[in-house]
């Protein structure tokens, strides 16, 4: 059992969850993830770890409440426990001296980008981060990024913070005036696809972190298979980071939608259940 040590909302639908998992905290590196399961009937889902305290044995992650499992995670209270946390999984980010590293993310994925960019800075790189969001309210991790980044660019769909536009627009604007050696893109698959194209056009290397569907996270099922450079790769053990210029993003997008119907059924059943519970307590 793994105890929740803290849970706070960062933005509507986004929570920062801290879990006591000492073995994972001792070994995890930027870019890695865990697979967790809430209870006996729960599913196994991968979650990127955005921060860790090796001494306290705590790992942090940002939960975007979209499905049943993530909604359940986002309402856990400190002191409550979840059944399983396994990790660290995946290959750590290749942290080295590139020169200028430009990070691109959208909303919740800023959390996944954060430890990588921090490590890139510590390695001696100049780092710029572009954060995209629907509006001012959905921006998270801005302060954390500003604490070490040489520059932070904010883009919002409605222009309520930074300048109007998507994160990828911000990337284009940045690369036009300031050449990057590496673009690190983490976010929705379409965004990563576009960011990769922009990076290539500007002669930068590009790495992306793929959100493939996973089960065991140790290479046993092949659910997370992605095509990279015309070869099938397993995102869980060979990724999650790959060269963005080689990834078949369209296939990934299609595979990510494989259980949309089931996910809807699961969520509806959960919400009905929650509603009945609330009615009971109201009475």
């Amino acid at each position: 059992m793994y105890e929740i040590s803290d849970n706070k909302q960062l933005a509507p639908g986004y929570n920062l969850l801290k879990i006591n998992a000492p073995l994972v905290a001792a070994r995890i590196e930027p870019g890695q993830f865990v697979v967790l399961r809430i209870d006996e009937r729960g599913e196994r889902i991968p979650m990127t770890v955005c921060d860790y305290d090796r001494e306290e044995g705590i790992i942090s992650m940002v939960v975007h409440a979209v499905g049943k499992t993530t909604k359940r995670l986002s309402i856990l209270k400190p002191g409550e426990k979840i059944l399983n946390v396994a990790g660290p999984l995946g290959v750590p980010s290749a942290i080295k001296k590139y020169g200028h590293v430009a990070g691109v993310c959208r909303q919740g994925t800023a959390a996944a980008l954060y430890p990588i960019m921090r490590a890139m800075k510590e390695e001696g790189n100049r780092v710029t981060v572009v954060i995209g969001a629907k509006s001012r309210r959905e921006i998270i991790f801005e302060e954390e990024m500003r604490a070490f980044c040489d520059r932070v660019i904010i883009k919002t769909d409605d222009g309520s913070a930074g300048s109007r536009g998507y994160a990828v627009h911000g990337l284009t604007e940045l690369l036009k005036e300031d050449r990057a050696d590496l673009v690190m893109a983490i976010g929705p698959t379409t965004m990563m696809k576009t960011a990769s194209k922009i990076a290539i056009a500007h002669g930068a290397k590009v790495l992306v972190s793929l959100g493939a569907i996973m089960l065991d996270g140790t290479g046993m099922c092949g659910a997370c298979r992605v095509t990279v450079g015309r070869k099938t790769r397993f995102a869980c053990v060979q990724g999650p980071e790959f060269d963005g210029s080689l990834v078949d993003f369209d296939e990934l997008k299609r595979r990510q939608r494989m259980y949309l119907k089931a996910e809807k059924i699961s969520l509806q059943a959960f919400e009905r259940e929650k509603e009945t519970e609330t009615q009971k307590t109201d009475r």
Partner: peptide, 12 residues
Amino acid sequence: MKAYMFPEYDTP
């Protein structure tokens, strides 16, 4: 993961 009991069990 007992998907044969979905949605009682979460895995589809």
